[in-house]
């Protein structure tokens, strides 16, 4: 039953991702992107990563895409086919896609849960993935005990505190930069 739900979300995510790039109308593209993100959030929920799922909807499908939509509406982007028909654009697009695919495809072929567990633990011998990652049942139990953010907050604020704070400084710099760029006179 869980697998059926997974395949449903996966199929809808892929189909709507394809529609994002094939739709002519930018507003329709934006909405298919929202659909993709909702499906990804559904998959996160299936993996018991409920906090990530909720944040995925809240931040990406909610705030970020609304801003996208806002910009598209304000600029009233029409059908910009002319740029797509030029050869250099096509060439650059294919090149970029090729580079990404050359990275992604081998990684996908080599993927195995043992390898993932190995990289996670960094131990000398291959670890049993079932020992490293919580099973769905124990993850659900942990959620019940510590609440949804507890799973994330503990590693984030203890083990990864310095990278977390550095990231927030980076974001702060981006915010200051955006304000400076947007407002000529401060």
């Amino acid at each position: 039953m869980v697998e059926a739900v997974f395949w449903f979300f996966a199929a809808v995510a892929i189909v709507s991702a394809l529609l994002v790039v094939t739709m002519r109308n930018p507003i329709a593209s934006a909405f298919w992107l929202v659909c993709t993100m909702l499906c990804l959030a559904g998959i996160f929920f299936l993996l018991q990563a409920q906090f990530i799922g909720a944040i995925q909807i809240l931040v990406y499908a909610g705030a970020v895409m609304v801003l996208f939509l806002f910009v598209i509406m304000l600029l009233n982007l029409g059908r910009d086919d002319a740029a797509l028909k030029r050869t250099p654009t096509w060439f650059a697009a294919v090149l970029l896609a090729g580079v990404l695919a050359s990275q992604l495809v081998p990684a996908l072929i080599r993927y195995s849960s043992e390898r993932l567990a190995f990289e996670y633990t960094r131990s000398a011998v291959l670890a049993d993935p079932r020992m490293v990652f919580d099973s769905t049942l124990s993850a659900a139990q942990a959620t019940l005990e510590r609440g949804v953010p507890g799973d994330i907050a503990k590693p984030l604020f203890e083990h990864y505190l310095v990278p977390f704070e550095l990231t927030s400084i980076l974001l702060l710099a981006a915010i200051v930069g955006a304000v400076v760029l947007a407002k000529r006179r401060i």
Partner: peptide
């Protein structure tokens, strides 16, 4: 009875603007 509770409400209410 979702464990994400209030986060779910904030997330879905942000969908309403579409």
């Amino acid at each position: 009875d979702l464990p994400v509770g209030i986060l779910f409400v904030l997330a879905i209410s942000s969908m309403g603007v579409y």
